[in-house]
Amino acid sequence: MGQAVQQPILRNGYRLYMLLFFVFLAAPLVAAGVFAFNDSMFPSLPWRGFTLDWFFSDVDPKIGMFHDRRLLRGLYYSFVIGSMVAALSVFVGTCNAFLFVRYDFRGKNFFYILMILPLVIPGVILGISILAMASNLANGVERSFGIELELLRPGIFLVVLGQFSFITTISSLIITARLKKFDSSMEEAAYNLGASRARVLRTVTLPFLRPAMIAAAIVAFLVSFENFNTTLFLVGSEAPLTITMYDRMVKVGSTPVLNAVSFFLMLGSALLALVSVLIQRDKSDQS
C-alpha cells in the first residue's frame, strides 16, 4: 500500500472519492432502469407505485416492450447482426492471431499497425466510407450490367460489414494475447506422439484458445449490439434496436417502455459480461 495514503484522513478522503466516482457511474444507469417500474406515463418523478406494465402489458396506451412490435423487431435484428458479427470477427481474429504470433514475414510490423488502425478511426467515418464504396459499386454494376445489387444498399449486410470492420481488431487483440501465452512444448509433445498437424490444432491449440475465442465472441456481440455511430449510416429498413430506440426518443418522446428496454439490455449485457469474466478467470487458473 502506498505510503501517501497511510494517514486516516487522506485514506478516508480517498475512499470517499471512490464512492462518489461510483455514484457518478451508477446514477444514469439507475435512472434509466428504475423508471421502467414506475406506474406512470412519463419516466420522471413523482413515483406512482411499482408496476411491470412496461414489460408485459398489452393494453393501449401502456404497451409493454414484449408486446411492442417495432421494439421486438429491433431486438431481433440486433441479435441477428450481433451473432453474424461475432462469428465473422472471431474467425478472422483467430486467423490474425496465428498470423501475427506464429509467422514472420516482411512488413509484419506495418501490417500489425494496419490491424490496430480501425480502432482509432472514428465510427462515423467507417460508416460513411463503407456506405460510399458500396453505393459506388452498386451504381457501377447497375450502369454496366443493369443488375440491381440490393445487397450493397443500406441494410443488414452493410451494417454487419461496418461493425465487423472495427470489431475484428478487438477480437484479434483478445485472441492474440491468449495465443502468445501458449507453451509450444505442448504442441511438440503431440507431434512427437505422432499426431498430424490438423489433429494437433484441433485437440491441443484450439481448446487452449477456446476461452479467449468465447470471450472475444461475447465482446464482439455486445459491441455490435450497442453500436450506434457506424450503424446509423448503413442502416436500411431493418433497423436494429439502438436505432429504433433513438428514433423513438427523438421523434415520439420517451415513455417508460424505453426504460424497460434499457433495463432489459443492461441485465443482458451484465450477464454476458459476467460470463466473459468467468471464462477469462478460468483461463488464468489453467495457464
Binding site: 444514469p28 434509466a32 423508471f35 450497442e226 430506440m245 426518443m249 443492461m266 459480461a273 469474466v277
Partner: peptide, 19 residues
C-alpha cells in the same frame, strides 16, 4: 468499472436526460 462499459451510449445518455 467495467459494467457501464457494456451499456450502450444511448442508454447512458437517456439516463442523464432523465436526471
Amino acid at each position: 468499472c467495467l459494467i457501464p462499459l457494456w451499456v450502450s451510449d444511448l442508454i447512458r445518455a437517456f439516463g442523464w436526460i432523465l436526471l
